[in-house]
Amino acid sequence: MAEKKVSVWSDNRFWQRSATWVTGFASLLLIWLTFDTMGQITMGNQKDINNHITKRVPSATVINYKVEYKMNQRRGHEVPVIGGDDGKGDSLFKVKENFFGRDNYSQKEADALLHLGKLASQAKNCMDCHTLLGNGAYYAPDLTKAWLDPAWQKGGTMQAMTGKSTKEEAMAEFLQNPGKYPTHARMMPNLGITQKEAVGLVAFLKHMATIDTNGFPRGFGKIKEGVVYARSK
């Protein structure tokens, strides 16, 4: 470096070190945040429900409870409400609801159903037509809150079409014979889903609807009948 005065700003080594430091710092920050997030998105269990602790990803046993999606005053957007709400949009974990005729699935039974459903969702490639939590393909509807979709409720078009009297049975029936119930020219193909797998998938969908997605999708099902906006004024 004796020949002439050189600036550190034009020094390769300086920039190499800077790049390393920046990358290292960003990575460490990401790892730290990851630890925090892991703690917050670990799946809860029945004990949390008994203690009225709201988890971002609740226990699989939520299939025993009534699930809704309501505006929460404190959060400023909709959140899943499990087992009835306290009037402010927080879960009470009280009101039960039958799931295939029962509301007493044990932790073990519920976990097994969810496990089967999650496996089925991957084995059947759901994500390459649908979106789950908004991620996937855009050929078919988002399934994040499918459990709460008005079409599957009593009086809804999908439930009526399958001739079943509960939404879990209607969903399971549709999943096993999608070709029999065309809802659109774009039909779901027959993926060889068995009765057991269908039950698992419905449990998976009900559980997914209870995940706290920070208000996504916004205003889910706010208009029941499709009235398309026309420019006012």
């Binding site: 078919a140 999908m158 999708p217 916004r218 205003g219 208009i223």
Partner: peptide, 23 residues
């Protein structure tokens, strides 16, 4: 079009999705 119809207005349901797809 999907944002306006299926999301902002109809609230992202099964019907909302297909109504938007049919436009």
């Amino acid at each position: 079009e999907q944002v306006l119809i299926a999301r902002a207005q109809l609230g992202a349901t099964w019907d909302a999705f297909f109504i938007a797809q049919n436009q």
